[in-house]
Nucleic acid binder design. Structure first.
Length: 187
DNA sequence: TGGGCGATTCGCT
DNA sequence: GCGAATCGCCCAC
């Protein structure tokens, strides 16, 4: 599997997002393949960067190829990959992976043995992988991140994003067709 | 400086 | 299917 380099992310977020489906996402010894992501662009009312740069979203306004981690509902962490040229403030939210490496460790962190629920959802994914605010701003092409291109072509499903109150109809959710490990089925 | 709110998850009905 | 948990961010006052 070919390593994903930083310039992989220096493209339209809508080009990067489907290309991430099927890619290997390793983090500090655990991981799996990406089966679900969502794209967020700075012109998108649902994006954190829509209202301009703030202390929280500053990483989104930096160069592509870095991790943007934020707190959701005061409880969960969610991880994004920053895309496009510096200043575009666009990113891909990683919503689910198919758990493949370090299942025991992920199960312990998550408190469940149900492999299907280990990483199905942005909050669950970060809990299983051990991703927190401490990893905000880290480069994606260096440890603890390990991203690799898919070994073979994949079929990508498309649908509306989840849990939003703004721009709900945009079909900017991408998934691995037929995967049991997505947070919600694609129809 | 305070109040409302959110790219969620889980448990109970 | 519904509501609680829980807290940092952000804007209005």
């Amino acid at each position: 599997m070919a390593m994903i380099r930083r310039n992989f992310f220096a493209r339209s977020v809508h080009a990067v997002a489907p290309d991430l489906i099927g890619a290997w996402f390793g983090f500090d010894g655990v991981g799996g393949r990406i089966v679900e992501v969502e794209a967020y662009h700075h012109t998108d009312p649902a994006a954190h960067s829509f209202g301009g740069q703030t202390a929280r979203n500053a990483i989104m306004f930096g160069p592509p190829g870095f991790a943007y981690v934020y707190r959701s509902y005061g409880i969960h962490w969610c991880v994004n990959f920053v895309c496009e040229p510096k200043g575009s403030a666009s990113a891909v939210l990683i919503r689910a992976i198919e758990p493949m490496a370090g299942l025991a460790k992920m199960s312990r962190r998550r408190g469940t043995k149900d492999v299907r629920l280990l990483c199905a959802g942005p909050g669950r994914l970060c809990e299983a992988l051990g991703i927190t605010h401490a990893h905000n701003g880290l480069a994606l092409d260096a440890p603890p991140f390990e991203l690799r291109r898919p070994t073979e072509p994949v079929e990508v499903a498309v649908g509306p994003r989840i849990g939003l109150t703004k721009a709900v109809d945009q079909p900017w959710r991408y998934g691995l067709k037929g995967s049991r490990f997505v947070s919600k089925p694609f129809r």
